[in-house]
Design a protein around this nucleic acid. Structure first.
Lengths: 350, 350
DNA sequence: AAGTTAAATGACAGCGCTGTCAATTTTGTT
DNA sequence: AACAAAATTGACAGCGCTGTCATTTAACTT
């Protein structure tokens, strides 16, 4: 700053430093620093004064300087290996919006979770970029080799996992309550009069698959409907899997009247296979998906699904992670999200 | 460094600074800095000495310090606003791999290209993150307001655009030759015996739409087939658009025997609509897409398309951009990619 | 061989911020 | 009201690197 504007009264687009803010608000640089970083031990009145100056000058901290000077790091990483691009983008956008709010930087690191040296690769990336914390989604969030290494090198992390009870205390986590969501979906189908409900599962390497199956089964039981194991088809989280799974179910003499697909891609595949066999949706067969990904909207009819708010999940996960990095104690280090039934056009009364 | 390793002979995982390298190689820090940054005016012998020391110590420059001290920036940004998550992820991965190779950092910035203050938002992000250059994809690469602002504030950029001739000299660019690719696709259909070829277009805000239409039309003409304007349906780059476009085409008395869809989502929609109307693919109707996105593989039958190697495109674009930032003169600042026909199962002889 | 010019190298300050620790103010206690 | 303890704030050094500019060394010239 410190450049005169020739009385124009408008701010010149100049570099604003922490020092400018300190002078304007009449405190020391260090105090401004404290306010910026949300540290305790700053009187509310002081905080307000500083914030006002920050706003007036439109001050934005220099990330490089902060990172150089501090022992702390203000960088987090998002490690991903997921063929589902929609999921990754949603996550990324959610993480990014929290980072922006909290003045953190994000390093994104695409990689192959099945590579031999994945642990070393992650470690090296963390050292190089001075990463303070990592957002972990499946499959990484469910790999002990990853979480153990992160613990060893003292890097915080937050896990987004499928489940409905806190798994342990090693890190904050967000649980996606696939069980309850599956219960709601199954109950929806039962309420529509369906009794023979097929199930096409996701891959066995995903915990979500099991949670969703259990939700489905327990709801049948609760409604006094016998679980027919041969109505449960092993699958993968893919379109092709939906096609072949639905084919199997539709070839039976006693066709199910509804299909619970473990995600929207499977559901889209099931929808496709049904069309091929001239089975009218939803008249002759109801189909539900899971996730509310664009897949569920890019079909006709649009697919009834469970809305999983990935972007919000990612944002909250990031908030938990940053809290942890800052060493701020919070009551809850785990949060739970339950995807909500979203009724669209692929389900109907039987 | 400077921590004794108790004679183990192994390197401890310690912070190695430029000073360590300087001492080991017997030159000044500044000279090491010159070598690291590939500056001229360093004798080859000196350069070798330094490089040896760098290697021995496994030195990696501290990005924050470099950015703080220098006037130069080693950060580039990828600005995106694209509903097609697959495209974004491919781009991002390509950009990232070149960044890693060249020791640059990447800032990703999702935003809304139609927001009122988008220009100011981008400007502010660039200042804040000290961005040296930007990778621009459609629609940003085709927005003069964006390229002009970037020029004004002296930030380099590279554009990825649809076209087959160099548009201007304002920046390096990668052209995706949609015209020639559309020619190849259309010729493929003609070679299969098709004469009545429908066309479902993408959005009018995309230059690619026009390039693809022109390639289609000119190939018909070259083969002495009359262009029927009413076979060309205005659409958007979406599944729904494919459904409704195909519906229109299939309602005609003289149905086309093939449909050229402006991208794979449209093609998937057209495929779906055809199924609904019991039109067998590819027996009664051939359908082609464009882009080779996962959409084209998640259908049955799999869709014939044009393979657009987005990740490679992104990587080359990034290389051009970094060259430009480094001020290195290269003969060619523009490159061209022509998507290649990829014959799958949705096209057949008529 | 001495003088001139160009190339290569180094000394040092300082980028904008935070950690440390000391100084100051506020709060609580008797 | 006087003192102790706790909460708040500030002074200053220095993070690891690069820009500037002075200095040294090599490469030509005549």
């Amino acid at each position: 700053m410190s450049i005169d504007n020739h009385g124009q009264g408008k701010k010149i687009n100049m570099k604003v430093t922490i020092n400018d803010v300190a002078e304007l608000s009449g405190v020391s640089m260090k105090t401004v620093s404290r306010v910026i970083n949300n540290e305790a031990s700053v009187r509310q009145a002081t905080r307000d004064k500083v914030m006002a100056a920050v706003k007036e000058l439109n001050y934005q901290p220099n990330l490089a300087a902060r990172s150089l000077a501090g022992t702390k790091s203000y960088t987090i990483a998002y490690i991903y290996d997921n063929p589902n691009a929609y999921y990754v983008i949603d996550m990324q956008n959610g993480i990014l919006s929290e980072c922006k709010k909290q003045n953190f930087e994000l390093v994104i690191h695409p990689c192959n979770s099945k590579a031999d040296d994945i642990i070393e690769e992650i470690t090296s990336m963390i050292k190089h970029s001075r990463v303070a914390g990592v957002v972990l989604t499946p499959p990484f969030s469910e790999m002990p080799s990853v979480t153990e290494r992160l613990t060893d090198i003292g890097v915080k992390f937050v896990r987004i996992i499928s489940g409905h009870k806190v798994p342990d205390e090693i890190s904050p986590c967000i649980m996606v309550n696939d069980f309850d969501a599956a219960v709601e979906i199954t109950q929806h189908l039962i309420d529509l009069g369906h009794k023979d409900i097929g199930f096409i599962s996701g891959g066995k390497e995903h915990k979500s698959t099991f949670e969703r199956i259990e939700g489905y089964k327990s709801t049948l039981v609760k409604n006094n409907i016998t679980v027919q194991e041969d109505l449960i088809i092993d699958g993968e989280y893919s379109f092709e899997s939906g096609v072949s799974g639905a084919d199997k179910l539709l070839q039976r003499q006693n066709r199910p009247t509804a299909i619970f697909s473990c995600n929207d891609e499977i559901a889209a595949g099931a929808l496709f296979a049904s069309r091929l066999q001239h089975v009218a949706i939803p008249k002759e067969l109801s189909i539900v998906g899971f996730e509310n990904s664009p897949f569920s909207r890019q079909t006709w009819p649009k697919i009834t699904t469970a809305d999983q708010p990935n972007q919000t999940i990612a944002q909250n996960a990031t908030a938990l992670l940053i809290n942890e990095i800052r060493g701020q104690k919070t009551d809850e280090i785990c949060e739970q999200f339950t995807p909500k039934l979203l009724v669209r056009d692929s389900t109907a009364k039987h």
